[in-house]
């Protein structure tokens, strides 16, 4: 493993979060062009990917692991309903345990190990001092329900999508760092229903084509895409639930503090077909980088300026950037003299 987890930093209150130079270098900058428009930007998630990159393994563990697991524990303490699994998803939750444990143990052997003896499994997570033996498939032998048990040990939000009638249903998830969507409200929705609020993309047929592609994913051939927005302060929990706590952050941006406060938030979304349940495991791994750190890469600075400058008003509104969009574009303009 390339990035060793560092001591816990915070994603709230005093925001001690920081990216090391290595973390900045491997940040998944999501813009292939100077203008951003919705597309079906799904591609095969072929592993192993480039060494040291966020795409190297099925699931990425980095220097923020301990911080994110502490943050997750805090969110669930405040609101346990941020994790739920409908009863018919039990098999899918166990599929998720298998996918996560086998890949983490194979890809990060210094931190995780898994022993399998028929259906008697022993899992060790040395980062969190966890060692548990259990019977695979028997939820009564785990200290927590399977979705919660695994979700508390992997970075990023997870949703399990049940595939029925050629459609996908959001029937289980652990969602503590969303870009403004609520699992409690959206649970049970179909693919186009939970994408209901997204502007423009429906008319373009983006979701119809994406759904057709996703329902055809076979076992062993995961796919990925990148999603992005901006977040003020290094806040992981930008859920609708806690919006009353972080809404005022958006009004706190000034011409002087853009670099420090405004963060590019990128989701590395991986979709993986799970063999026993035929459900899709939807991993939403969130990366945050301040604009100050972002602009240490001149190409990124230039492109970020151009993307924001040409962003359609519907997207500015939908992504919640209205209050500070102009400030951000102005601040970035010094890195893009041609424009």
């Amino acid at each position: 493993m390339r990035m060793s987890p560092k001591p816990v930093q915070t994603f709230r209150d005093d925001f001690t979060y920081s990216n090391s130079p290595g973390a900045v270098a491997r940040f998944p900058f999501p813009f292939p062009e100077d203008e951003y428009r919705y597309s079906v930007n799904i591609e095969p998630h072929v592993t192993p990917g480039p060494e040291g990159s966020v795409f190297e393994f099925l699931l990425d563990i980095d220097e923020h692991y301990l911080s994110e697991m502490a943050e997750r524990a805090t969110v669930l303490e405040e609101n346990p309903k941020r994790c739920l699994a409908m009863p018919h998803m039990d098999l899918a939750c166990w599929d998720m345990i298998e996918r996560c444990m086998t890949s983490l143990a194979a890809d990060y052997p210094e931190h995780f190990s898994l022993q399998v003896d028929g259906d008697q499994w022993t899992w060790e997570n040395r980062l969190l001092n966890i060692k548990d033996s259990f019977t695979f498939g028997d939820s009564s032998t785990l200290p927590l329900p399977p979705m919660e048990y695994m979700g508390r040990q992997v970075q990023g939000d997870f949703a399990l999508l049940d595939q029925r009638d050629g459609d996908l249903f959001l029937d289980a998830g652990i969602v503590t760092c969303p870009a403004d969507w609520s699992l409690a409200f959206d649970a049970g929705m179909s693919f186009s229903e939970w994408h209901g609020p997204v502007p423009l993309a429906h008319e373009m047929g983006v979701f119809d084509r994406a759904l057709k592609y996703l329902t055809a994913i076979p076992v062993g051939r995961p796919v990925r895409r990148l999603n992005w927005t901006l977040t003020v302060n290094a806040r992981m929990d930008t859920s609708p639930e806690t919006y009353p706590n972080w809404g005022t952050d958006r009004a706190s941006v000034t011409a002087d503090n853009v670099g420090e406060k405004v963060h590019l938030r990128v989701e590395l979304q991986v979709l993986d077909r799970m063999p026993r349940s035929n459900a899709l495991m939807f991993s939403i791994r969130t990366f945050l980088i301040s604009f100050d750190d972002l602009v240490t890469n001149p190409d990124w600075a230039r492109r970020m300026h151009r993307v924001l400058k040409t962003l359609p008003p519907e997207l500015i509104e939908y992504k919640g950037l209205g209050r500070y969009h102009d400030l951000a574009v102005e601040w970035l303009s010094r890195f893009d003299p041609a424009n």
Partner: peptide, 20 residues
Amino acid sequence: RDHFARLHGAYVGVQINAED
């Protein structure tokens, strides 16, 4: 909002003045 959840039979409400 107009975002509707069939299992709740309800529309979602979000604080309108959280930013100001």
